[in-house]
């Protein structure tokens, strides 16, 4: 048993290193040029955002429509830090501060609002994100208001991008596979039964919310550092919706689903650039069609395992069950 775990662990590390190396090679040889690098960064940011929202919505069952709010807090925190001290260590510090500030705000917002359920929580978190946006719009001295902050030095490169992305995904993966994560999942399944079985539901909802917020903060920090420029309206309601779409498309409660969906949707979006006039219309139609024909998302709540054969077998079994 222990040996199996170890080999599995080794396999996972190998897969990670391989991913890193291949993409590094593609970047070094310039096969992955500027435009595709933008896509790559967007994919990584969206992976972090989607996986962290999945923790809140998919695993813990708390419907949040305000994830972009936490992202904006991270983006501004990191931007302000690196604009003042333009060094790599201060960028790393900025990312951690971004996570910390977002976590604190997540705690302050989560504690009162997580008593609400379902759509009410969704609408409260939406309101919260709008308030955050409004505050950033009005704090002229710190955030430069609606004009936003520009000229943010770019410290993020593929190495750091990979570290932060893989890091957050692994942390969340570890969390949902721990007893604490199971406590969160039990809240999604049946809150009253979870309480009766000794799960402090308020505590675990808030914990999920804090971890999710902190990761969104990291995503925001990466965004600010890569794209030079941020302004409050970038992190509005539509951004929150974008993230939710990735999560639902990948499958609520599936980390690998979120990762795959983030990649697929970014590729679709890149491909649709060619039809810029009707890009959003096609995207919208796609969304509706996917929801009508596969409302549980790509993966449902299942995970992709490393063993491809096992996966295929799983798909097969799945089909039989449905008949």
């Amino acid at each position: 048993m222990a040996r199996l775990l170890k080999t599995n662990w080794v396999k996972k590390s190998l897969a990670l290193i391989l991913t890193y190396a291949v993409i590094q090679l593609l970047i070094s040889t310039n096969i992955l040029g500027g435009y595709y690098q933008d896509t790559l960064v967007t994919i990584c940011i969206n992976i972090i955002l989607a996986v962290s929202l999945n923790l809140i919505t998919g695993f813990t069952g708390q419907f949040s429509l305000g994830h972009a709010g936490f992202m904006s807090i991270g983006a501004y925190t990191c931007a302000i830090v690196v604009l003042r001290y333009q060094t790599l260590p201060s960028f790393i510090l900025g990312v951690f501060l971004a996570a910390l500030t977002a976590a604190i705000v997540g705690f302050l917002v989560g504690l009162p609002t997580l008593r609400l359920r379902g759509d009410y929580l969704a609408i409260a978190t939406l309101g919260m994100a709008e308030i955050i946006k409004n505050v950033f719009l009005n704090l002229d001295k710190i955030t430069n208001g609606a004009a936003g902050l520009s000229g943010i030095p770019q410290f993020i490169n593929w190495f750091w991008l990979f570290v932060f992305t893989a890091g957050t995904v692994l942390l969340i993966l570890n969390f949902v596979n721990s007893s604490h994560g199971r406590a969160c999942i039990s809240i999604r399944e049946d809150e009253i039964a979870a309480e009766a079985m000794g799960v402090n539901t308020t505590k675990y909802k808030v914990i999920a919310f804090i971890i999710g917020a902190a990761c969104a903060g990291v995503a925001g920090a990466i965004y600010a550092s890569y794209f030079y420029f941020i302004q409050p309206t970038l992190f509005g309601f539509l951004k929150s919706i974008d993230i939710l779409v990735i999560v639902v498309f990948g499958g609520l409660g599936s980390i690998s689903g979120s990762v795959i969906a983030a990649v697929v949707l970014a590729l679709i979006s890149t491909y649709l650039q060619a039809f810029s006039e009707i890009r959003m219309v096609l995207y919208a139609v796609l969304l509706v069609v996917i929801m009508i024909f596969r409302p549980q998302g790509l993966m449902g709540s299942k995970e992709v395992s490393l063993a491809v054969l096992g996966k295929l077998g799983g798909l097969f079994r799945d089909r039989k069950e449905r008949v």
Partner: peptide
């Protein structure tokens, strides 16, 4: 078609329709 699907799937559909109308009109 989504009347018996999960609430969240229905919500995403609503968002899709919303985007469709907005950008369709814009077109």
């Amino acid at each position: 078609p989504l009347r018996n699907a999960t609430r969240i799937a229905a919500l995403i559909t609503a968002i899709g329709v919303s985007l469709f109308l907005e950008y369709g009109t814009m077109f």
